[in-house]
Design a binder for these strands. Structure first.
Lengths: 139, 139
DNA sequence: CTTAACTCCTCCAGTGGCTGGAGGAGCAAG
DNA sequence: CTTGCTCCTCCAGCCACTGGAGGAGTTAAG
């Protein structure tokens, strides 16, 4: 099976330009070329790119994906490291959710208090102008 | 009151480099300069920068802040537009939280199922390799 | 008055993770 | 043979900064 970058793109949902970018940054290997100089991919490339795409969709950073790919290539190793990477990422996602939730409550309080009058008396503007108006001062 | 960019930075918690950046992109006005060519700020600048900083902390994009600042300068206008910007942003934050929460559950399921054996049998790697393993297929 | 330490100045490059365009060449169908 | 598509490389831009180089102004101590 020899497919073009366009076909690879269709099968994985990753843009051809992004595939070339992944090659540049070392996530994807440089594939063999046809006589005309075009990239020629096989099933292994499809699987690897699907892995990368899925990991990106789950929010893993490119560096983490590099580590995961390296581990994936060594199935005999204990998977403790994989676990560490995934848990680290989970903790980061938890942190992001927490921060966004706090922010959301600040925002919604702000919006609720807007009396729909003039800008001069708008609570949204007031709250933005004065951090002291916030319930949580941590942001 | 005439303060330097460093003092402005201290009072607002915004880096001096970032203040100059805000000037470049038109969020902050170009202030008067001293004889030696240094920027000289006053109380209005401090207030404006505090407003910007707070809005950024609440996740407003620079474009939205530009709009909010323009509205802030027109206290006689009805605050409907302010409301629209804030609600739009709130909706976006809600969307982000939703997506992150879905992602979090996928991640935590993945981590929970890891049997701490070899990479070859690791569920984390398997799930990443096969999108079909996910409960939510929307990401 | 000099010197050292500090802040400030401008300009430019880099971050992450792509995305898009210019300008040119390969390739399949009519 | 030509049309239209895909592909190639290289480079610039996105967002919102951040940091460094290299130079000049400023302040306090000696």
């Amino acid at each position: 099976m020899e497919i073009t970058i366009g076909e690879l793109s269709k099968r994985t949902g990753v843009l051809a330009t992004t595939v070339r970018y992944y090659e540049d940054v070392g996530l994807m290997p440089a594939p063999p070329r046809t006589a005309g100089g075009r990239r020629s991919y096989g099933t292994a490339h499809v699987a690897r790119l699907a892995f990368i795409r899925h990991a990106r969709q789950l929010g893993f950073e490119v560096d983490a994906i590099r580590e995961l790919l390296a581990l994936n290539a060594r199935p005999d190793l204990p998977c403790a490291e994989v676990d560490v990477i995934a848990r680290r990422h989970l903790a980061e996602v938890d942190g992001r959710i927490e921060r966004l939730t706090a922010l959301r409550s600040e925002l919604s309080r702000m919006v609720d208090e807007c009396g729909h009058g003039r800008v001069g008396e708008c609570r949204v503007i007031e709250v933005l102008s004065d951090h002291g108006e916030c319930l949580g001062h941590d942001h």
